[in-house]
Design a binder for these strands. Structure first.
Length: 198
DNA sequence: CCCTGATTCGC
DNA sequence: GCGAATCAGG
């Protein structure tokens, strides 16, 4: 694959949006995240934030490599102070579908005026599955939204309105957005709903 | 271990 | 210019 105009554009777009190099690579196809990063650098759009101007990386790595006569270029970036008044554009939620099925089976109406639907209410969910969830949630990694990846369970735990909120974060398996335990309660086969002429 | 971007350097 | 290998970190 080569960097056609379109591909470069998509790259720019996604990079600007805050997508990770690997995500971009996947989207483009035919390239690795390294390729993407390399291209990004060549295009000169390495940093996406406006404020965080990494001053320098004076890492005098004394590597026993062969002698390298590198002519280091003086600061390439004219150091854009950028006293931008705007609060550094936050990359909108990168993870899609952060609104999981909180209530797998909400047939039972919640009392009234009770704005508390968060906890995966147990309805007719396999008790075993529920127990499993209760168990694993104790060991959840409590990841924040930012820390979620495509391979971490995105099951929300706690009340989003409070500090007691986090995501399961346990390793999710191939494709699924949740860990095994949560997949169990999230995707109910089709038990009780016996008839339903669809 | 999973992931992130950054850099180097042979091609 | 390209990107694998490597580096440095979370």
């Amino acid at each position: 694959m080569s960097w056609t105009d379109e591909r470069v554009e998509l790259l720019k777009k996604m990079w600007t949006e805050g997508q990770s190099a690997s995500q971009i690579a996947k989207e483009l196809g035919g390239v690795t995240r390294n390729a993407v990063i390399g291209k990004v650098h060549r295009l000169g759009l390495s940093n996406r934030a406006g404020g965080a101007a990494e001053p320098a990386k004076p890492e005098p790595k004394a590597k026993p490599e062969k002698v390298e006569a590198k002519a280091e270029k003086p600061a390439v970036q004219p150091a854009a102070e950028a006293p931008e008044p705007k609060p550094a554009a936050k990359p909108a939620a990168p993870v899609q579908a952060a609104a999981p099925v909180t209530t797998p089976a909400r047939k039972a109406i919640i009392p009234a005026g009770q704005p508390l639907p968060p906890q995966p209410s147990a309805n007719e969910i396999d008790p075993a599955a529920l127990a499993k969830v209760g168990e694993i949630e104790k060991h959840s990694k409590k990841l924040s939204l930012m820390e979620l990846t495509e391979r971490t369970c995105k099951w929300p735990i706690g009340d989003p309105a409070t500090e007691d909120f986090w995501f399961c974060g346990l390793p999710s398996q191939a494709g699924k957005p949740y860990c095994e335990a949560h997949v169990g309660v999230a995707f109910q086969p089709m038990s009780a709903r016996r008839d339903r002429r669809r």
